Simulated scan of single mutants.
Amino acid sequence: MGEPRYVVIAGDLMKKIAAGKWPVGELLPTEPELAAEYGVSRETLRRALKRLELGGLISRHPGTGTRVERLEPVAAFTAQLGSVEELTQYGEAAVRSVLSVESVTVDAALAEVTGLAEGSRQVCVTSVRRDPDRSDEVVSWARVYLGPEDAKAVAGDLEEGRQLIADLVEARTGRAVERVVQQVRAVSVSAEAAAHLGLEPGSPGLEFVRRYYDASGALFEVTVSTHAGDRFVYETVLQRR
């Protein structure tokens, strides 16, 4: 599998900046112009620009544009999230199958795990993700908590999908992910999760809790996913930029 499109675009833009196509202090073409040049969506283009921004090559100013700040990236180690798909490690390759959708009231225990307000009403989407090449192998078991309005907006898009639910919410409501906070811990796999993962209840597993925040800082989605401890490796790459 090749590199994601936004990574390729970022690399090309870095080469052009290093070659002096846009001198320090000059503005890059607008996002619509660059997106059209590369034949991608503005969201993909923004992900590419974010990589340049993290490297200190550019600065982005609403209403003014994207300005070149330096010709070579800053030398630093960064652990960065280029996309939510990278965060999950299996991204859009694994196929989602929805097991149930139900309305729940957040109790004290669930509030502690998710960070959702105790007593709030949420819609819980329980699902599994399957290996696209081996449909009998479940990659993960998860519960996704959404507000009722967001859940209603994406209800028709959930079944047998590959796209992340956070991306579905953005497509249907315009609410985009600005920040994701992830926690990982070792757990004993619950009986319900074990039944789908093909494990004995109590087997060692990894639990990921991901909290999705929009541009206003509002928490609008929480995903709690479980993976078999002996079949899943989570890798973080620190790259000198």
Rank of each mutant, 00 (worst) to 15 (best):
I165Y: 01
A228R: 10
P132F: 11
A176R: 15
T78E: 13
E85R: 10
V40D: 00
R211I: 02
I17N: 05
A111L: 07
Y145C: 04
L27T: 05
V106W: 03
L45S: 04
A153Y: 02
A142K: 06
V184C: 05
V181D: 15
V104F: 06
T236P: 01
E92Y: 13
A186I: 13
T78W: 11
Q183A: 14
P73E: 08
L146E: 00
E33F: 02
E200W: 10
P29N: 10
S216M: 08
V177Y: 01
E37D: 10
E137P: 01
A142T: 11
L45C: 06
E26D: 14
Y90W: 12
E102C: 08
R134H: 14
T126Y: 03
V98L: 06
K152V: 09
A191Y: 06
D167G: 00
E102Y: 06
Y90D: 13
T105G: 05
S225M: 07
L57K: 03
A76L: 12
K152Y: 05
V180T: 12
D107W: 06
L146F: 01
L197P: 08
S100F: 06
W22E: 07
L45G: 02
Y6D: 05
V222F: 07
G229T: 04
K21D: 14
A186Q: 14
V101H: 05
L146T: 00
M14P: 01
R162P: 01
L54C: 04
L99I: 13
D167Y: 00
R231D: 10
Y90N: 12
A215H: 11
